[in-house]
Design a protein around this nucleic acid. Structure first.
Lengths: 185, 185
DNA sequence: GTCTATAGGACGATAGAC
DNA sequence: GTCTATCGTCCTATAGAC
Protein backbone atom coordinates (compact mmCIF):
# COMPACT_ATOMS: atom_id res chain seq x y z
CA UNK A 1 0.00 0.00 0.00
CA UNK A 2 1.32 3.40 -0.96
CA UNK A 3 0.24 5.20 2.18
CA UNK A 4 2.03 2.83 4.52
CA UNK A 5 5.14 4.64 3.35
CA UNK A 6 3.43 7.96 4.02
CA UNK A 7 2.06 6.93 7.40
CA UNK A 8 5.51 5.93 8.60
CA UNK A 9 6.95 9.31 7.61
CA UNK A 10 4.17 11.29 9.23
CA UNK A 11 4.48 9.30 12.46
CA UNK A 12 8.25 9.71 12.48
CA UNK A 13 7.96 13.47 11.97
CA UNK A 14 5.48 13.74 14.83
CA UNK A 15 7.63 11.68 17.19
CA UNK A 16 10.78 13.60 16.32
CA UNK A 17 8.93 16.83 16.95
CA UNK A 18 7.72 15.62 20.31
CA UNK A 19 10.68 13.75 21.76
CA UNK A 20 13.54 13.90 19.32
CA UNK A 21 15.26 11.45 17.02
CA UNK A 22 17.29 9.44 19.49
CA UNK A 23 14.46 8.99 21.95
CA UNK A 24 12.26 7.59 19.19
CA UNK A 25 12.44 3.84 18.70
CA UNK A 26 11.71 1.85 15.61
CA UNK A 27 9.14 -0.21 17.48
CA UNK A 28 7.46 2.99 18.57
CA UNK A 29 7.16 4.12 14.96
CA UNK A 30 5.64 0.79 14.00
CA UNK A 31 3.22 0.80 16.91
CA UNK A 32 2.09 4.41 16.53
CA UNK A 33 1.76 4.36 12.78
CA UNK A 34 -0.01 1.02 12.72
CA UNK A 35 2.24 0.15 9.80
CA UNK A 36 2.99 -3.51 9.19
CA UNK A 37 6.27 -4.23 10.89
CA UNK A 38 7.58 -6.15 7.94
CA UNK A 39 7.13 -3.21 5.64
CA UNK A 40 9.48 -0.85 7.40
CA UNK A 41 12.68 -2.26 5.98
CA UNK A 42 10.99 -2.88 2.66
CA UNK A 43 10.25 0.81 2.23
CA UNK A 44 13.25 2.08 4.14
CA UNK A 45 16.21 -0.25 3.73
CA UNK A 46 18.38 2.38 5.39
CA UNK A 47 16.46 1.87 8.63
CA UNK A 48 15.67 4.48 11.21
CA UNK A 49 18.12 6.99 9.81
CA UNK A 50 16.58 6.90 6.35
CA UNK A 51 13.11 7.34 7.82
CA UNK A 52 14.47 10.32 9.72
CA UNK A 53 15.95 11.93 6.62
CA UNK A 54 12.80 11.53 4.55
CA UNK A 55 10.53 12.64 7.39
CA UNK A 56 12.57 15.83 7.84
CA UNK A 57 12.55 16.64 4.14
CA UNK A 58 8.80 16.03 3.96
CA UNK A 59 8.24 18.24 6.99
CA UNK A 60 10.41 20.95 5.44
CA UNK A 61 8.24 20.95 2.33
CA UNK A 62 5.02 21.15 4.32
CA UNK A 63 6.29 23.92 6.60
CA UNK A 64 7.68 26.07 3.80
CA UNK A 65 4.52 25.64 1.75
CA UNK A 66 2.39 26.75 4.69
CA UNK A 67 4.79 29.60 5.33
CA UNK A 68 4.62 30.78 1.72
CA UNK A 69 0.84 30.86 1.84
CA UNK A 70 0.89 32.95 5.01
CA UNK A 71 3.47 35.35 3.62
CA UNK A 72 1.41 35.91 0.50
CA UNK A 73 -1.62 36.80 2.57
CA UNK A 74 -0.08 40.02 3.87
CA UNK A 75 1.83 42.70 2.01
CA UNK A 76 4.09 43.93 4.78
CA UNK A 77 6.73 41.27 5.53
CA UNK A 78 7.11 42.24 9.17
CA UNK A 79 3.43 41.91 10.02
CA UNK A 80 3.23 38.70 7.96
CA UNK A 81 6.11 37.16 9.90
CA UNK A 82 4.76 38.46 13.15
CA UNK A 83 1.43 36.77 12.62
CA UNK A 84 3.22 33.59 11.57
CA UNK A 85 5.02 33.56 14.92
CA UNK A 86 1.83 34.30 16.83
CA UNK A 87 0.10 31.46 15.01
CA UNK A 88 2.92 29.17 16.06
CA UNK A 89 2.59 30.34 19.67
CA UNK A 90 -1.09 29.47 19.60
CA UNK A 91 -0.58 26.03 18.13
CA UNK A 92 2.07 25.26 20.72
CA UNK A 93 -0.27 26.38 23.44
CA UNK A 94 -3.00 24.01 22.32
CA UNK A 95 -0.53 21.17 21.74
CA UNK A 96 0.77 21.41 25.30
CA UNK A 97 4.22 22.65 24.26
CA UNK A 98 5.32 19.32 22.92
CA UNK A 99 5.28 20.62 19.42
CA UNK A 100 7.22 23.23 17.52
CA UNK A 101 8.70 21.64 14.52
CA UNK A 102 10.60 18.42 13.91
CA UNK A 103 13.43 20.57 12.61
CA UNK A 104 14.06 22.23 15.95
CA UNK A 105 14.60 18.96 17.77
CA UNK A 106 16.32 17.00 15.01
CA UNK A 107 18.81 19.63 13.96
CA UNK A 108 20.26 20.11 17.42
CA UNK A 109 20.51 16.40 18.14
CA UNK A 110 22.14 15.28 14.94
CA UNK A 111 24.89 17.81 14.27
CA UNK A 112 27.38 15.26 15.51
CA UNK A 113 25.56 11.95 15.49
CA UNK A 114 24.08 11.83 12.00
CA UNK A 115 25.54 13.66 9.08
CA UNK A 116 22.72 12.62 6.76
CA UNK A 117 19.95 13.92 9.01
CA UNK A 118 21.84 17.11 9.66
CA UNK A 119 22.05 17.60 5.91
CA UNK A 120 18.32 17.02 5.55
CA UNK A 121 17.74 19.66 8.21
CA UNK A 122 19.86 22.14 6.30
CA UNK A 123 17.86 21.44 3.15
CA UNK A 124 14.63 21.98 5.03
CA UNK A 125 15.87 25.22 6.57
CA UNK A 126 17.01 26.36 3.12
CA UNK A 127 13.42 26.17 1.92
CA UNK A 128 12.24 28.21 4.88
CA UNK A 129 15.02 30.75 4.53
CA UNK A 130 14.33 31.30 0.85
CA UNK A 131 10.64 31.84 1.55
CA UNK A 132 11.52 34.63 3.97
CA UNK A 133 14.21 36.03 1.70
CA UNK A 134 11.91 36.27 -1.32
CA UNK A 135 9.36 38.09 0.76
CA UNK A 136 11.96 40.63 1.85
CA UNK A 137 13.23 41.07 -1.68
CA UNK A 138 9.70 41.62 -2.98
CA UNK A 139 9.28 44.41 -0.48
CA UNK A 140 12.29 46.18 -1.93
CA UNK A 141 15.16 45.03 0.28
CA UNK A 142 18.54 44.29 -1.31
CA UNK A 143 19.52 40.64 -1.71
CA UNK A 144 22.36 40.50 0.82
CA UNK A 145 20.32 42.28 3.46
CA UNK A 146 17.31 40.08 2.68
CA UNK A 147 19.38 36.93 3.25
CA UNK A 148 20.58 38.19 6.62
CA UNK A 149 17.08 39.17 7.68
CA UNK A 150 15.74 35.77 6.65
CA UNK A 151 18.39 34.08 8.79
CA UNK A 152 17.65 36.42 11.66
CA UNK A 153 13.93 35.74 11.56
CA UNK A 154 14.48 31.99 11.45
CA UNK A 155 16.93 32.24 14.33
CA UNK A 156 14.34 34.09 16.33
CA UNK A 157 11.62 31.55 15.62
CA UNK A 158 13.80 28.57 16.49
CA UNK A 159 14.92 30.21 19.70
CA UNK A 160 11.32 31.05 20.49
CA UNK A 161 10.22 27.46 20.02
CA UNK A 162 13.04 26.29 22.26
CA UNK A 163 12.26 28.73 25.06
CA UNK A 164 8.51 28.21 24.83
CA UNK A 165 8.99 24.47 25.10
CA UNK A 166 11.33 24.84 28.03
CA UNK A 167 8.99 27.04 30.05
CA UNK A 168 5.77 25.49 28.79
CA UNK A 169 4.62 28.97 27.94
CA UNK A 170 3.77 30.86 24.78
CA UNK A 171 5.29 34.06 26.10
CA UNK A 172 8.81 33.70 24.64
CA UNK A 173 7.34 33.36 21.14
CA UNK A 174 4.97 36.27 21.75
CA UNK A 175 7.82 38.48 22.94
CA UNK A 176 9.77 37.53 19.83
CA UNK A 177 6.85 38.53 17.63
CA UNK A 178 6.47 41.86 19.37
CA UNK A 179 10.17 42.72 19.38
CA UNK A 180 10.40 41.84 15.72
CA UNK A 181 8.27 44.82 14.82
CA UNK A 182 10.49 47.34 16.52
CA UNK A 183 13.53 45.74 15.13
CA UNK A 184 13.94 45.22 11.45
CA UNK A 185 15.61 47.80 9.20
CA UNK B 1 37.77 10.57 45.76
CA UNK B 2 35.81 13.77 45.63
CA UNK B 3 36.68 14.72 42.07
CA UNK B 4 35.39 11.47 40.59
CA UNK B 5 31.98 12.97 41.25
CA UNK B 6 33.10 16.20 39.60
CA UNK B 7 34.72 14.46 36.63
CA UNK B 8 31.53 12.57 35.89
CA UNK B 9 29.48 15.77 35.87
CA UNK B 10 31.91 17.64 33.64
CA UNK B 11 32.04 14.76 31.18
CA UNK B 12 28.26 14.46 31.14
CA UNK B 13 27.88 18.19 30.49
CA UNK B 14 30.33 18.03 27.61
CA UNK B 15 28.66 15.00 26.04
CA UNK B 16 25.19 16.49 26.38
CA UNK B 17 26.45 19.66 24.77
CA UNK B 18 27.94 17.74 21.88
CA UNK B 19 25.39 15.03 21.15
CA UNK B 20 22.50 15.39 23.51
CA UNK B 21 21.20 13.47 26.50
CA UNK B 22 19.61 10.48 24.80
CA UNK B 23 22.55 9.83 22.52
CA UNK B 24 24.90 9.74 25.48
CA UNK B 25 25.35 6.34 27.08
CA UNK B 26 26.35 5.52 30.61
CA UNK B 27 29.28 3.50 29.35
CA UNK B 28 30.40 6.48 27.32
CA UNK B 29 30.41 8.67 30.41
CA UNK B 30 32.47 6.09 32.27
CA UNK B 31 34.92 5.67 29.41
CA UNK B 32 35.38 9.38 28.67
CA UNK B 33 35.61 10.51 32.28
CA UNK B 34 37.94 7.71 33.27
CA UNK B 35 35.82 7.35 36.37
CA UNK B 36 35.72 3.98 38.06
CA UNK B 37 32.68 2.18 36.73
CA UNK B 38 31.63 1.02 40.16
CA UNK B 39 31.50 4.56 41.49
CA UNK B 40 28.80 5.83 39.18
CA UNK B 41 25.87 4.39 41.07
CA UNK B 42 27.55 5.12 44.35
CA UNK B 43 27.61 8.83 43.62
CA UNK B 44 24.48 8.91 41.51
CA UNK B 45 21.98 6.30 42.70
CA UNK B 46 19.43 7.90 40.40
CA UNK B 47 21.49 6.79 37.43
CA UNK B 48 21.84 8.60 34.15
CA UNK B 49 18.96 10.94 34.80
CA UNK B 50 20.41 12.17 38.08
CA UNK B 51 23.78 12.75 36.44
CA UNK B 52 21.96 14.74 33.77
CA UNK B 53 20.14 16.91 36.28
CA UNK B 54 23.26 17.72 38.28
CA UNK B 55 25.35 18.32 35.17
CA UNK B 56 22.80 20.80 33.84
CA UNK B 57 22.58 22.69 37.13
CA UNK B 58 26.36 22.84 37.37
CA UNK B 59 26.61 24.10 33.80
CA UNK B 60 23.95 26.71 34.52
CA UNK B 61 25.98 28.05 37.41
CA UNK B 62 29.17 28.22 35.37
CA UNK B 63 27.49 29.89 32.40
CA UNK B 64 25.66 32.49 34.44
CA UNK B 65 28.79 33.29 36.43
CA UNK B 66 30.76 33.83 33.23
CA UNK B 67 27.91 35.87 31.84
CA UNK B 68 27.75 38.09 34.91
CA UNK B 69 31.47 38.81 34.64
CA UNK B 70 31.13 39.80 31.01
CA UNK B 71 28.11 41.98 31.67
CA UNK B 72 29.94 43.84 34.40
CA UNK B 73 32.83 44.61 32.08
CA UNK B 74 30.77 46.95 29.91
CA UNK B 75 28.36 49.69 30.93
CA UNK B 76 25.98 49.59 28.00
CA UNK B 77 23.89 46.40 28.17
CA UNK B 78 23.44 46.13 24.42
CA UNK B 79 27.15 46.22 23.61
CA UNK B 80 27.88 43.90 26.52
CA UNK B 81 25.38 41.34 25.23
CA UNK B 82 26.54 41.82 21.69
CA UNK B 83 30.12 41.01 22.61
CA UNK B 84 28.91 38.02 24.62
CA UNK B 85 27.23 36.65 21.50
CA UNK B 86 30.29 37.34 19.36
CA UNK B 87 32.46 35.54 21.90
CA UNK B 88 30.13 32.58 21.68
CA UNK B 89 30.34 32.64 17.89
CA UNK B 90 34.12 32.51 18.11
CA UNK B 91 34.20 29.65 20.57
CA UNK B 92 31.79 27.66 18.42
CA UNK B 93 33.97 28.30 15.39
CA UNK B 94 37.04 26.92 17.12
CA UNK B 95 35.11 24.00 18.60
CA UNK B 96 33.87 22.91 15.17
CA UNK B 97 30.24 23.76 15.89
CA UNK B 98 29.72 20.84 18.22
CA UNK B 99 29.43 23.13 21.15
CA UNK B 100 27.00 25.82 22.22
CA UNK B 101 25.74 24.94 25.60
CA UNK B 102 24.43 21.77 27.21
CA UNK B 103 21.22 23.67 27.88
CA UNK B 104 20.41 24.11 24.22
CA UNK B 105 20.50 20.40 23.49
CA UNK B 106 19.09 19.10 26.75
CA UNK B 107 16.14 21.42 27.04
CA UNK B 108 14.73 20.56 23.64
CA UNK B 109 15.17 16.83 24.09
CA UNK B 110 13.69 16.45 27.51
CA UNK B 111 10.50 18.53 27.46
CA UNK B 112 8.55 15.31 27.12
CA UNK B 113 10.94 12.54 28.08
CA UNK B 114 12.31 13.74 31.41
CA UNK B 115 10.45 16.09 33.69
CA UNK B 116 13.38 16.30 36.13
CA UNK B 117 15.92 17.35 33.51
CA UNK B 118 13.49 19.80 31.99
CA UNK B 119 13.11 21.35 35.42
CA UNK B 120 16.88 21.58 35.83
CA UNK B 121 17.04 23.36 32.47
CA UNK B 122 14.45 25.88 33.62
CA UNK B 123 16.45 26.55 36.77
CA UNK B 124 19.60 27.06 34.70
CA UNK B 125 17.82 29.40 32.30
CA UNK B 126 16.40 31.31 35.26
CA UNK B 127 19.93 32.14 36.37
CA UNK B 128 20.82 33.37 32.90
CA UNK B 129 17.61 35.34 32.54
CA UNK B 130 18.08 37.08 35.85
CA UNK B 131 21.65 38.07 34.93
CA UNK B 132 20.34 39.78 31.80
CA UNK B 133 17.38 41.28 33.63
CA UNK B 134 19.53 42.83 36.36
CA UNK B 135 21.76 44.39 33.74
CA UNK B 136 18.78 45.97 32.02
CA UNK B 137 17.34 47.21 35.29
CA UNK B 138 20.68 48.75 36.26
CA UNK B 139 20.65 50.69 33.01
CA UNK B 140 17.33 52.23 33.94
CA UNK B 141 14.79 49.97 32.28
CA UNK B 142 11.56 49.15 34.10
CA UNK B 143 11.23 45.67 35.63
CA UNK B 144 8.54 44.26 33.34
CA UNK B 145 10.29 45.52 30.24
CA UNK B 146 13.63 44.24 31.55
CA UNK B 147 12.18 40.74 32.00
CA UNK B 148 10.88 40.69 28.47
CA UNK B 149 14.16 41.92 27.05
CA UNK B 150 16.06 39.28 29.01
CA UNK B 151 13.83 36.58 27.57
CA UNK B 152 14.20 38.03 24.11
CA UNK B 153 17.99 38.10 24.30
CA UNK B 154 18.11 34.52 25.56
CA UNK B 155 15.74 33.43 22.80
CA UNK B 156 18.02 35.04 20.25
CA UNK B 157 21.13 33.37 21.63
CA UNK B 158 19.53 29.94 21.78
CA UNK B 159 18.22 30.29 18.23
CA UNK B 160 21.64 31.49 17.12
CA UNK B 161 23.36 28.47 18.63
CA UNK B 162 20.87 26.19 16.93
CA UNK B 163 21.26 27.76 13.50
CA UNK B 164 25.03 28.02 13.79
CA UNK B 165 25.25 24.35 14.67
CA UNK B 166 22.97 23.39 11.84
CA UNK B 167 24.92 25.26 9.17
CA UNK B 168 28.34 24.77 10.76
CA UNK B 169 28.82 28.49 10.48
CA UNK B 170 29.22 31.37 12.89
CA UNK B 171 27.20 33.69 10.70
CA UNK B 172 23.76 33.17 12.31
CA UNK B 173 25.16 34.18 15.70
CA UNK B 174 26.98 37.14 14.18
CA UNK B 175 23.81 38.33 12.45
CA UNK B 176 21.97 38.02 15.75
CA UNK B 177 24.60 40.15 17.47
CA UNK B 178 24.42 42.83 14.80
CA UNK B 179 20.62 42.93 14.62
CA UNK B 180 20.45 43.19 18.37
CA UNK B 181 21.96 46.66 18.27
CA UNK B 182 19.36 48.06 15.92
CA UNK B 183 16.61 46.46 17.81
CA UNK B 184 16.19 47.02 21.50
CA UNK B 185 14.02 49.82 22.88
C1' DG C 1 4.21 -6.50 0.06
C1' DT C 2 3.53 -8.30 4.39
C1' DC C 3 4.40 -11.44 8.10
C1' DT C 4 6.86 -13.72 12.27
C1' DA C 5 10.78 -14.96 14.53
C1' DT C 6 15.04 -14.05 16.01
C1' DA C 7 19.73 -12.71 15.73
C1' DG C 8 23.15 -9.84 17.88
C1' DG C 9 24.48 -6.09 20.34
C1' DA C 10 24.00 -2.11 23.53
C1' DC C 11 21.79 -0.32 27.09
C1' DG C 12 20.76 0.94 32.14
C1' DA C 13 20.96 -1.03 36.37
C1' DT C 14 22.12 -4.42 40.27
C1' DA C 15 24.68 -7.67 43.28
C1' DG C 16 28.19 -8.87 45.99
C1' DA C 17 33.27 -9.35 46.71
C1' DC C 18 37.03 -6.56 48.34
C1' DG D 1 34.79 3.70 47.51
C1' DT D 2 35.89 0.77 44.00
C1' DC D 3 35.72 -3.45 41.39
C1' DT D 4 33.86 -7.16 38.16
C1' DA D 5 30.36 -9.88 36.55
C1' DT D 6 25.98 -10.23 35.05
C1' DC D 7 20.93 -9.66 34.70
C1' DG D 8 17.10 -8.37 31.99
C1' DT D 9 15.42 -5.33 28.65
C1' DC D 10 15.26 -2.89 24.65
C1' DC D 11 17.07 -1.85 20.42
C1' DT D 12 18.15 -2.05 15.27
C1' DA D 13 18.39 -5.07 11.75
C1' DT D 14 17.96 -9.55 9.14
C1' DA D 15 16.16 -14.03 7.39
C1' DG D 16 12.93 -16.54 5.34
C1' DA D 17 7.99 -18.12 4.99
C1' DC D 18 3.80 -16.71 2.72
Amino acid sequence: MADTHEKILITMARLIEKQGFHATGLNEIIRESGAPKGSVYYYFPGGKEQIGVEAILEAGKIISRRLLALLEAEVDPVSAISSFILKMAESMETAGYNAGSPLTTATIETTVTSESINQACRQAFDMILSAFREKFIESGIKQAKASDLAMFVTTLIEGGILMSRTYHAAKPLRIAARQLKSLLF
